[in-house]
Computed example of a mutant assay.
Amino acid sequence: MLEPVLESGGRPLVADVGAGTGKLTRIIVAAGCDAVAVDPDPAMLDALRVAVPGVPAHVGTAESLPLDDESVDAVLLGQTWHWVEPVAASREIGRVLRPGGTLGLIWNIRDESHSWVRRLNSVVSRGGALTMFDDGPPPIAEPFRRLDEERWAWSRTVSRSQLTDLVRSRSFYITATPDERNRIDRDLTALFDELGLEGSRTIELPYVTRAFRTTKPSR
């Protein structure tokens, strides 16, 4: 994702938009880039400043970036593009990118090619990203024209309690009514029992990383 900007030499400046608490920001810095973080939530940015000291952090959105014209070499969005208005965000990111700069869009999504994952997603929530992918690649607009995609399959080992904590940490569960939460808990219990997830037993939760890249045309 960052190879083209790294190959240009020096220390490229990369904007992490929708940075949250800085998970992707840390990767950007570790790759040898300078970073600037943007997020609409000031509390998230407070946590980011602790996690990644010295990285400038600003309140803003993909549609309204607090960055100068043609000031960054790349803009990355991790797990966030399905929340933005793509025409306005493309135009705004095009404004802050230098000519030839990179826009990168990244998601880690549960792999629905596994039947039990499809069942899990039917119980909890497929999420906005999977719903977006049902219609094809992420939508982009001018000045960007074509997306290149790479995919990686991987998994994490999880126990019953870890899967339960994962579900209960998501906004759809937190904001659900008590009846909806009870329904989710019952369906999860049935699924976990069928999978034999008892005590210390674990299962591999499969994911696919989908990474898309496009560039701003050079003059």
Rank of each mutant, 00 (worst) to 15 (best):
A62Y: 07
S64P: 00
G128I: 04
A141W: 00
V96T: 05
W81L: 07
V87D: 11
R110S: 09
H114L: 11
E70M: 06
H58S: 11
L45K: 07
R118K: 14
S113Q: 12
E63M: 02
P40M: 04
R126I: 13
P40Q: 08
G100M: 04
E112F: 01
P99N: 06
F144I: 00
V50K: 11
D46Q: 08
V72L: 13
D41E: 15
S71P: 04
E142K: 08
S71M: 02
S90T: 09
I106L: 15
L147Q: 01
R118F: 02
L120K: 00
D134C: 08
G54S: 12
S113E: 15
L120R: 00
V36C: 09
P56A: 06
G104R: 05
L103H: 00
E112G: 14
M132Q: 14
L105N: 01
S113D: 12
S122W: 06
M132N: 06
A47V: 13
G60N: 08
Q79R: 03
V75M: 01
V96N: 01
R145F: 00
P143K: 00
V72W: 03
W107D: 13
V36K: 13
S113R: 15
H114I: 05
V124H: 09
P86H: 05
R110D: 05
E92D: 05
W116D: 11
P53T: 08
D68S: 12
N108P: 12
T131S: 14
A43F: 04
V84T: 11
G101F: 05
A74T: 05
S125G: 10
A37F: 08
P56K: 03
D134N: 12
V55E: 03
E142H: 08
L120N: 06
V55T: 09
D134Y: 02
S122P: 01
R95I: 01
V55Q: 03
V84Q: 02
P53S: 11
R118W: 07
D135I: 00
G101R: 09
S90L: 04
V84Y: 05
M44S: 07
P138R: 02
W81G: 06
D68E: 15
N121I: 10
S90A: 09
R126C: 08
G128L: 09
H114E: 11
G127V: 02
S71E: 04
A47H: 10
R49Y: 06
R118V: 10
W81D: 09
A88L: 15
E92P: 01
L67Q: 12
G128T: 01
W83Y: 14
T80G: 13
L130K: 07
S125Q: 07
A89H: 05
V124R: 05
P99D: 09
A74L: 10
A89F: 03
P42Q: 05
E112Y: 12
V55I: 08
L48E: 04
V52I: 03
L45P: 09
D41T: 11
D68V: 04
S64I: 02
W83I: 07
I93T: 08
V96F: 02
V55W: 03
L120S: 00
R95Q: 10
P137H: 02
N121D: 14
E85Q: 11
H82F: 11
S115G: 15
P40N: 07
D69V: 08
A88M: 12
W107G: 07
A57M: 11
S71Y: 03
A89V: 02
W116H: 14
E142V: 08
P139N: 06
G60C: 13
V59F: 05
